[in-house]
């Protein structure tokens, strides 16, 4: 990160947010145009396949403002968004903002659990591998990472359902909670946790792979550096050299990659939520594409873009806190 003089972290964060306004505006416009020119007609999707009188179709079209030219609709949309109004969902009969925020919460829960789990496992595997390069432990960690890279999330999700839900019956096949029994308190929490295991695992696998590989290479490089040699020459114990000197320095690239691959997890969550019927924003996106629910699609794209920007900013802040050399 370039030297930015001696501003405070808060001002740096604010500046970054202000700077991202044009980006967000661009995202809105591009998304709007993409969706407008995409094939398929929301009105047909809404009405269904049975024949409807043309006057009725025309009335629906007018009702949703779809009879007006694209540029007018775009301007109106941008103004509405600026006022916090993301429109109304044709299919769900709900304001888009409420709908997206509710679903986003569920996705975030899944993602936070996934990232925590995957980072812990990935860092542990990476350290195990880097400690004794080319050992059996290293080969095992590298093998797991390779599998994580090459197995498609969608396929992994289905295999998990077949093995752990259908054959072994250990975990539910989908959904976010049991529908037939109503649990309360701790039991309800456990019920949700049980529902989360399989989707979390499916979503984690690639992330574990990325974190393992990165921790391994980053740590190996750091452990070969002069200051590690110097720490050893000072009589610092191997345990401390690894955890306090090595991993602290190796954490920088790990933080960056974890933060910046957030966007990929969001994409992955769309697949996983579809497979597991997890009622999050990914599942909503999937459904809204089928129903040509344009305001919802646009709303999701906007909210997801915003969250990627925020997460990247948080990543930079975390990096700055970890690396004393960074100046804002």
């Amino acid at each position: 990160m370039p030297n930015r003089g001696d501003k405070t972290l808060g001002r740096f964060a604010l500046g970054r947010l202000v700077n991202s306004i044009p980006l967000v505006l661009g995202v809105i416009v591009v998304n709007f145009l993409l969706v407008s020119f995409a094939p398929g007609d929301p009105v047909t999707a809404l009405i269904g396949d049975f024949p409807a009188p043309p006057e009725y179709v025309e009335r629906v079209r007018e009702q949703f403002g779809l009879d007006q030219p694209v540029h007018e609709r775009l301007v109106r949309y941008v103004v509405n968004v600026a006022r916090g109004d993301l429109g109304f969902s044709f299919a769900n009969r709900l304001p888009v903002l409420d709908l997206v925020l509710e679903r986003l919460g569920r996705t975030l829960v899944l993602m936070i659990v996934t990232v925590t789990f995957a980072t812990t496992v990935g860092v542990a595997l990476g350290v195990m591998a880097a400690r004794k390069p080319h050992s059996a432990a290293d080969a095992a960690a590298t093998g797991i990472a390779l599998a994580g890279y090459s197995i498609p999330v969608f396929w992994l999700g289905q295999i998990l359902v077949i093995v752990f839900a259908v054959w072994l019956g250990l975990f539910p096949a989908g959904g976010m909670r049991s529908v037939r029994v109503t649990y309360t308190g701790l039991a309800a929490l456990l019920d949700r946790a049980r529902h989360m295991v399989l989707p979390m695992f499916a979503l984690s696998f690639r992330y574990i792979a990325i974190t393992t590989r990165l921790t391994r290479s980053s740590l190996l490089e750091v452990m070969n550096s002069d200051y590690i040699l110097a720490a050893r020459a000072r009589g610092i114990s191997e345990r401390r050299v690894l955890w306090e000197h090595g991993l602290r320095a190796a954490a920088l690239p790990i933080i960056t990659v974890i933060g910046y691959s957030f966007a990929f997890i969001v994409a992955g969550s769309a697949l996983v939520e579809t497979v597991f019927g997890w009622p999050g924003v990914g599942r909503l996106m999937y459904d809204s594409i089928f129903t040509r629910d344009y305001p919802v699609m646009l709303g999701i794209l906007l909210v997801v873009s915003l969250s990627v920007i925020v997460v990247n900013l948080l990543t930079d802040i975390a990096y700055a806190l970890f690396d004393p050399r960074v100046r804002y």
């Binding site: 200051y227 040699l229 720490a231 050893r232 020459a233 320095a249 920088l252």
Partner: peptide, 25 residues
Amino acid sequence: MRAIRGSRIGMIFQDPTSFLNPVLT
């Protein structure tokens, strides 16, 4: 040997900047 390094025998290196950990005070 660890107990001897840095206590009975001290070492000074060529490039002082690269021999200090950048993320620790």
